[in-house]
Design a protein around this nucleic acid. Structure first.
Lengths: 208, 208
DNA sequence: GCGCAAAATTGCGTGCACGCATGTTTTGTG
DNA sequence: CACAAAACATGCGTGCACGCAATTTTGCGC
């Protein structure tokens, strides 16, 4: 369906990637992210330090990837799986809210760690852009226009990123304005962030 | 109007930033980006190597900043300057097309160098996200909703980024599909990328 | 099974980003 | 006009990302 290159080779690569992810998260949780060197992660995963950078371009990426994993691909699949009659904006919003809400797993404390460290927070937000490519494909099938699909996918990714940012960021401007900023739940933030894009999504949808 | 903090200090900072930008671009053009070390740039600008990183987070940023400079702020100003009756989508598109089309200056050969080096191309695209913040302010005044404004600004930034990407990227998929990809001009790419967002922009506009 | 080409891993070397501690300049206040 | 606080420049040290080239592993046709 998607990209099934060759069998065993790809399999081992994914295993290594998974091992690195897991090791990174485990060590970071155990000793604190600041006290984990790339060499440690590589050693724990049983590969050379240099190999680490064949899989992740930064130390933060590996830790964050353990949480975000293949969430992006699932979102795209969920969008594609909605009944045909559903407006595109609704399909997208529902799929995203479902997939991003939320771990329930062991990722709970990982999220806590990530949100309190600026560098990890940044990496976590950046990871949201990974939905662009799968979403572009789905949108492409529904709108028929690849260029439009890409723009809309990028916009959705940006909205998700903003929602996560607002959800994750510590309140800062409170004292200055005297206003107490009530933090919405993640689903509410996601819906609020995606709402402004609904007209564009639906216009492109039936535009074909 | 915007953020005029205090006098002499800010002035010197901008002078240093400008000196670094200029030095980075000049050296990169002269010897090729690969052969310019951060230390060289710092030395040419008359500051310590460490100071360089107080202004730019990467070597590429400084080079690219010499071209993109304050383009972002000008876009925001241009949007704000359109007559009140203009639809928001039109105001945004026209302002962006105007400001991004194109250097005419000494930036011609700089662009050539940037587009041929992957690292610089990446930095150039990333620089487009700088419009987000000024655009958010402008949109905020026009829509009345800060959250919506931010999402739309980010979407516009993403669209611009995509347009620049398509404009700047060397044709790659041509051989595979057998199709000759005709490269549109930058204004055409920008308009095409922004068009899908028009419904969202205009819906938010008069929504207030 | 066997060998070969493609692909992945590894080691090495280099330049870089950035935290921290310290000296220096700027600012606004009494 | 002096002075304390804040902002900035600088040195130093550390860990990191990545290009390059050599080496090992994998997949596949024979």
């Amino acid at each position: 369906m998607t990209t099934r290159r060759t069998g065993l080779r790809e399999q081992k690569k994914q295993a290594t990637r998974e091992a690195l992810r897991a090791a990174a998260l485990r060590l970071a949780l155990a000793h604190g992210p600041e006290n984990v060197r790339v060499d440690d992660i590589a050693a724990a995963a049983g590969v050379a330090p240099r190999t680490y950078n064949n899989y992740f371009a930064s130390r933060e990426q590996a830790i964050v990837a353990a949480v975000t994993a293949d969430r992006e691909a699932r979102v795209a699949a969920a969008v594609a799986g909605r009944p045909a009659g559903t407006p595109l904006s609704e399909a997208v919003t529902d799929a995203i809210v479902t997939e991003y809400t939320e771990p329930g797993e062991d990722a709970r404390d990982a999220l806590l760690m990530i949100t309190t460290r600026p560098a990890l927070r940044q990496a976590y937000l950046d990871a949201a852009t990974a939905i662009e490519s799968p979403l572009t494909e789905v949108f492409g099938e529904r709108t028929g226009d690849a260029a439009t699909a890409r723009v809309l996918a990028a916009s959705v990714a940006a909205a998700v990123r903003i929602a996560l940012d607002r959800w994750v960021r510590p309140a800062d401007g409170g004292a200055a304005t005297g206003l107490v900023v009530v933090r919405d739940s993640l689903p509410a933030q996601l819906r609020a962030a995606l709402a402004p894009l609904a007209p564009a999504l639906d216009a492109a949808d039936h535009g074909r």
